[in-house]
Design a protein around this nucleic acid. Structure first.
Lengths: 257, 257
DNA sequence: CGCTACATTGATGATTGTCAACAAGTGTGG
DNA sequence: CCACACTTGTTGACAATCATCAATGTAGCG
């Protein structure tokens, strides 16, 4: 702990050149048009991606052909980890709108992880967060009712959009009802019905994909959670300029090693 | 790839001292009695564990108190990764029977990852596999019916027990109907009913926790999958003696970096 | 303007959860 | 050794949630 604290005093905002040999301006990027696929299931695993702008959905498909939306990534989220295991991607990643992603050679990430504590923490946490995220989603899919799921979905999205600079209480859904249903393990009709239901109850206002959140407490109550019971957010692996941020390692404090 | 091949010729069975400074005989272990908890949600993250003998269940709990079984780990499986993200464990891990686990200081794992290609591959894959496993489970939970889930569960368990040296077609469940239900997102009564149903159809024979698999093709048909559509297994991070195995990196072949 | 994709709403039924009773097995203590 | 409590598993009856099918409405786009 004391050692970590000492480290914090080292250069933080201005990443040392050993950490980011590439200047942000020349960090490779890739642009996608609305509807375009970043990579598809079966593609050989290549670089990782970090969303810079735009909104995506990731589609996991099982052997028998069924498809499910597993995430709705946006700025700061990492894409491509699903290919590390087998060497081939398991997911399709599709852009909802015109988007831009940073391209990170996986070898470069491993160099960070080997050369710097900070990079190692980032990589480790990026992987680990993916695991806890999946656990949360599994809990949602197995032990909640449709009403709860939709409420949780709205609140989660509201917060994430808010963090992107949009209004917390007024935003536009990027995805169809079917995407939402797939993500939540529901049929699109059920989603539609529940949104209408929430509107009748005065919790929200819906107009197609335009959502106004009118009664946060009511929605939270539906979920059975409290607003503060959310997990702390992980810092993105790259900031908006393409630099490595410095992350404190809250996770290593208790680890007595 | 050529460099990796060269490595294969190096001593493999007898791990070089730089890889495993601790001799297997003195690798720390921990014994658990039936029903004992390896670690619980909220515990500070410490070492990782690799199951040597025995059978476990892992329980993920959400903020509002609901609990779900997320895995049924057995020999070779890694426990404790769920704490890497936040620094605190998110899961309870409970032993079904008297069990023994290897204890791996996380720092030691990171040393492997930094010092050797092989260790890095092992760590990377261990994390990544956890992610793909979760995706598979999410698909199961969202888009299948109870009948499929129970059939998949039986086939999966059959194969895993078989790999532990037990019979593929005759084995004993370690967990209760409730555990199975929780794992599959079903009520225990539903599980019980479906097992009885499968028995009436002649697919299996059930006697409490004793299962005889009588008609594999029929069960596979229920799942909608084929036996070979399974993902390849990952090598355990430690073999039964506590040594690091050597893993080929099929995953890096297509990655053009 | 008409085509297409997306969304809403209703009617209906199937799957699954809930409640309840009972059986079987296990361990404990008298 | 038996009685007892306790956990686990089975089965039935019933209800509720949610999926399915179908019809209609709406918005975007060439």
């Amino acid at each position: 702990m004391a050692r970590a604290a000492a480290k914090v005093l080292r250069p933080v905002a201005i990443a040392p050149s050993i950490v980011t040999p590439l200047k942000p301006a020349i960090r490779p990027r890739r642009r996608l048009r609305r509807g375009e696929t970043l990579f598809g299931a079966g593609d050989p695993f290549g670089p990782l991606f970090v969303v810079r702008t735009g909104h995506f959905k990731t589609l996991a498909s099982s052997a028998n052909g069924q498809v499910q939306v597993t995430r709705f990534p946006m700025a700061g989220d990492v894409l491509g980890l699903d290919g590390v295991d087998t060497g081939f991607h398991q997911c399709d990643v599709v852009a909802f709108d015109n988007a831009e992603v940073f391209v990170l050679a996986f070898a470069e990430c491993e160099r960070w992880a080997q050369d710097t504590e900070n990079g190692q923490r980032l990589m480790r946490r990026t992987f680990a967060r993916e695991i806890t995220r999946s656990h949360d989603h599994m809990l949602l899919l197995s032990a909640t009712r449709a009403e709860q799921r939709v409420a949780m979905f709205l609140l989660d999205l509201s917060e994430r959009y808010c963090r992107q600079g949009e209004s917390r209480s007024r935003f536009a859904l990027r995805m169809t009802r079917q995407d939402i249903g797939s993500y939540l393990g529901l049929q699109l009709e059920t989603v539609s019905r529940l949104l209408s239901h929430f509107q009748r109850e005065g919790f929200i206002q819906v107009q197609g994909r335009e959502i106004s959140m009118l009664d946060f407490p009511a929605l939270w109550q539906l979920t059975g959670h409290t607003p503060d019971s959310h997990r702390p957010l992980i810092e993105p692996i790259l900031d908006a300029q393409g630099n490595l941020p410095f992350v404190s390692d809250a996770g290593d404090g208790p680890a007595s090693m």
